[in-house]
Design a protein around this nucleic acid. Structure first.
Length: 266
DNA sequence: CCCGATGTTCGATT
DNA sequence: AAATCGAACATCGG
């Protein structure tokens, strides 16, 4: 579920974490910590103060005194602050107790999400590419780097090592608005400037609407995103294209369910 | 009941 | 280098 706008929405909802201290870590699913055993992680995390919260791609980054607590929500992760522990713990995988007696709670239906502990961000930066809101990501960057690759555009945009943060929903939306067929070769894309504008504007627009809730995405005590009503292709199989009125089709591209207007996107 | 699909990522294989 | 596939899981719908 969560792509860049949803992750940014979560980051925005966690501002109250700043300057709070982590007192204790508790878990019920061992694999919720990706790069350490939970035993080791407990030691590492204790008594750290959260200095800042940022995001890169789909990763949430809590800046600690001299280290980083990084969270990835994968498909169904839900990270939120609460004065109380959940009454329904079916999907609670772990939580942190803070010095003000509040809880940072991580629920995750499908158990794919979790946390990394890093002493530097270099591992993370090596793993993923440029963020769309990075100053270095501009029209020239996109033009030059699309030219360097010979890949189906949808496949390339899904690759987090290329650009990080885009996922299945927003790529379909961006390619529809850009009038680009998802199977197009990245080298042959003519209007890269228009594609750039649509990447930025669609992400910004969705952030303003707190992201898209299709099935499971919630933030800040069960709030949901409202961008779903603004989707032009995703999930609109068989419905008329908002530009030409011909039928939206669904087809598998790069192994993912993909929504296309074959008239607008040649 | 079984099968397929779901917004992500990783690693193996072609 | 690029593309496909299965796995990590749970849930829902046909």
């Amino acid at each position: 579920m969560p792509e860049l706008p949803e992750v940014q929405t979560v980051v925005n909802s966690l501002g109250a974490l700043i300057n709070k201290k982590i007192i204790k870590f508790s878990y019920s699913w061992e694999k919720v910590i990706y790069n350490f055993s939970t035993k080791k992680f407990k030691d590492l995390i204790k008594s750290h103060t959260i200095k800042n919260i940022t995001r890169k791609g789909k990763y949430i980054i809590l800046h600690l005194n001299d280290s980083y607590l990084v969270c990835h929500l994968r498909m169904t992760g839900y990270l939120y602050l609460s004065k109380d522990l959940p009454t329904d713990n079916r999907h609670t995988r772990c939580y942190f107790i803070l010095n003000n007696k509040e809880y940072l709670i991580f629920k995750d239906i499908r158990k794919f999400g979790g946390f990394y502990f890093y002493t530097s961000l270099s591992d993370l930066n090596k793993k993923i590419g440029i963020d769309p809101f990075d100053n270095l990501f501009n029209k020239n960057w996109l033009k030059n780097n699309l030219k360097r690759k010979k890949r189906m555009i949808k496949h390339l945009l899904l690759d987090q090592k290329f650009i990080c943060g885009l996922g299945n929903i927003y790529i379909d939306e961006i390619l529809w608005k850009s009038r680009i067929h998802p199977k197009s070769n990245s080298q042959n894309i003519k209007n890269t400037s228009f594609l750039y504008d649509n990447i930025i504007s669609i992400l910004k627009d969705s952030i303003a609407f707190h992201g898209t809730t299709i099935m499971n995405f919630t933030f800040d005590n069960m709030k949901t995103g409202n961008y779903k009503n603004k989707l032009n292709v995703y999930g609109r199989n068989g419905l008329p294209c908002n530009s030409c009125s011909k039928s939206i089709i669904k087809q598998r591209v790069a192994g993912r369910g993909t929504y296309i207007c074959t008239y607008c996107q040649q």
